[in-house]
Design a protein around this nucleic acid. Structure first.
Lengths: 240, 240
DNA sequence: GACCTGTCAAGAGCAGTGCTCTCTTTCCTT
DNA sequence: AAGGAAAGAGAGCACTGCTCTTGACAGGTC
């Protein structure tokens, strides 16, 4: 899961891999039920029938456990969203965008604590290590893919004139697109990205209380409408 | 601060109010430095020179302390944003919107832990009591105010046709506007609201790493551009 | 002025946490 | 079979939130 230990050779290696998986599994269940704050190494140890100090043979510390769960969560979300997006015809770019949005929301509602772990308040004193950035960018890459296809098909909206300092500010993400997306479209894409996760975060973290009706149907209708609004900001219209 | 104990009469009442304020102050400092997760009643007690059990005379429990800090944070944010917005000419609606956005962001950058407390992952097992909803809606009310003025001035964009279920989903927030804002405009306003906080949350929680350049100037230029983009979705244009 | 009552600080204690260190057992390799 | 590495167990440290009891003191009343 973390640094793939090649193929397990000896029985000991196998046992080690199995127990590590068991620990991760127990941790995942705790996370799903009570959230990251309540995740305790001792409770996990109890679940797998070990004494607390024994888990330290498998996991260096609590933060490392969290890192594994974070990567796990990003991968779980990424897989779900990629699958949903791939089921839509390539030329239906609005459909692809909406599929991504609804897949993210569906996953978030099904795994609220995992969502909070990766998109909520960062764990204090915890700095996400480099190995998280790969899994973390799977959803973004899908979105950029739509921008690239939109540009290639010539359907992208005419770029606005931009202040050079604004264009310079998004230099990092422009590298991902490697010149295949205009500055202006990338900025619109970033707005859609922030809007997507901002809306889901608000819904999940309770900011829609007294704002949007709380029934599942209302929430979904609202979300769908807002995502279409974001899509039209990208120039993705019904007439695909 | 919580339930105003009228005017302190006896010396005892005065002492009690003073010590309570001292405790809150120490808690606020801890929150600002280490964040909500690290906020411990014992540490607060040490700061004010008391033994841990003594604080329980003044604060029922840790959650109650958090509630007070949450209300505090909402009020602090609300005051800053209201002041910034009120400094702009009423007819300059784009200016008012941008003033709100930049004020929220400025406050968030200056008080990251307070921001995380109110807009980040909810504290597990903690349900925000009713007395937080007043302070919590100060920013939203300013935004709605702009929508109302926009409508009254006749400058609002022509409403799109809406699916009735979408319009129904935002019934709660429409009550705040009391018929002075169309369903369509309110939905656009909600998108701006989510976009504003989504962008700030992303910036603060590290999601812009490798996406937006990390210098203060780049971040601000980017933010300003994104907020103008949101404003144009509301029909707020330069030519106010 | 004496007395009762309510308030408050303090201490001990419970159950829990992350993590380290040491000791013993187990199992794999040579 | 022997040596050594890996794994489990236990004790312990320094914390946490929270409760209960004890003793000191101040406020208002008789």
């Amino acid at each position: 899961m973390t640094t793939s230990p090649t193929v397990p050779r000896t029985a000991r290696d196998r046992a080690r891999a199995e127990i590590t998986a068991e620990i991760l599994d127990a941790a995942r269940q705790h996370l799903a039920r009570e959230g990251a704050a309540a995740l305790s190494l001792r409770a996990v140890a109890r679940d797998v029938g070990m004494v607390s100090s024994a888990v330290y043979r498998y996991v260096p510390n609590r933060d490392a456990l969290l890192t594994m769960l974070i990567i796990d969560a990003y991968d779980s979300l990424g897989a779900v969203v990629e699958k949903a997006e791939s089921a839509v015809a390539r030329e239906d770019r609005l459909g692809r965008f909406l599929a991504i949005c609804h897949a993210v929301r569906g996953w978030a509602l099904a795994h609220p604590h995992e969502y909070a772990l990766i998109y909520g308040t960062p764990v204090p004193g915890y700095a996400a290590p480099e190995d998280t950035i790969g899994p973390a960018s799977r959803v973004s890459l899908l979105l950029i893919g739509i921008l690239v296809d939109l540009t290639a098909s010539g359907a992208a909206p005419a770029p606005d004139e931009l202040d050079p300092s604004v264009a310079a500010s998004i230099a990092p993400v422009l590298e991902f697109a490697d010149g295949r997306v205009s500055d202006d479209l990338m900025l619109r894409g970033l707005a859609a990205w922030s809007g997507l996760f901002g809306t889901i975060t608000f819904e999940l973290f309770g900011q829609f209380h007294n704002v949007v009706a709380s029934s599942q149907r209302a929430r979904k209708a609202f979300f769908d409408h807002q995502m279409r609004q974001l899509a039209s900001g990208l120039g993705l219209d019904e007439a695909a």
